Simulated assay, not measured.
Amino acid sequence: MTDLPYLTPLTADQQQAAGLPTQWPLAIADRVRFAELDPLNHVNNVAYLIWFESARVAYFKHINLTTYENAATEPRIVIRRGEMDWLQEMRADEDYVIVSKTIACRTTSFTMHQEIWSAGTKRAEFKCVIVLLHPDGTGRLAIPDPIRAYFHDVEGVERDQENRFT
């Protein structure tokens, strides 16, 4: 998988070449770094959460939810609940792909699903409920209509679907 571009959204063909069984709205490749290893010489559990966070930031920019450039006007994006499954260990210098999509949407919140794949095997997955707040943090903010339309039209999310983990 080393000929995949790192930290750049992958095309459908690149996702297939990386061993993903299905195409995702956003997939980003990278490689395990030495600094991400623990004393047992496998990836430290917290590194997965950092990888998922980096992919979520890229996803939010990709769908035009935020640019992270103007805190005074852009929504605050917070995780209300998250659930992580570590499925198989990873080691130094492994290439991996993080995939991200929205699987449910309500008025002010949505549920994301993310996975990490390496060598054709799912290594970890993360599901979380994201809540949008007003820029000043005073209360919940409705998901903008263009974002809701993207969730529905591109990612196939039913409107006002419950934010449940399945």
Rank of each mutant, 00 (worst) to 15 (best):
I130R: 05
R56Q: 05
V157T: 07
T102G: 12
F151A: 04
V32G: 02
A55R: 02
G19Y: 05
T67R: 13
C105Q: 14
D30Q: 06
R33F: 06
T11E: 03
V99E: 04
L65D: 05
W117G: 09
P146Q: 02
K61P: 00
P25W: 02
E125R: 13
L133D: 10
F165R: 11
P21M: 09
I116M: 12
P39S: 11
E155R: 00
F52A: 03
I98D: 00
T102F: 03
E162H: 10
I77F: 05
N70H: 13
A71R: 12
Q23A: 14
D160N: 15
K101N: 10
Q114A: 04
Q161W: 00
L40D: 07
S109G: 11
W86V: 09
A12F: 01
T2M: 08
Q88C: 05
L65K: 06
A124M: 08
P5Y: 00
D13C: 03
A149Y: 00
S118H: 08
R148H: 05
D30N: 15
I77A: 06
T107M: 11
L4S: 12
T2N: 15
R91Q: 12
A72Y: 12
Y96V: 05
P135H: 13
R106E: 15
T66K: 06
D153H: 02
F60E: 04
V131R: 11
R91H: 15
L132R: 03
R33Q: 14
E115G: 05
L40A: 15
L40W: 04
H152S: 13
P39R: 09
G137N: 10
Q161Y: 00
R81K: 15
R81D: 12
E162K: 13
A47M: 09
A72T: 14
P39W: 04
C105A: 14
H113C: 10
T138Q: 14
N70S: 12
P25Y: 02
T121L: 10
P9R: 07
A72I: 10
E74Y: 07
Y59M: 00
E155S: 01
A29Y: 08
L10K: 10
F126D: 13
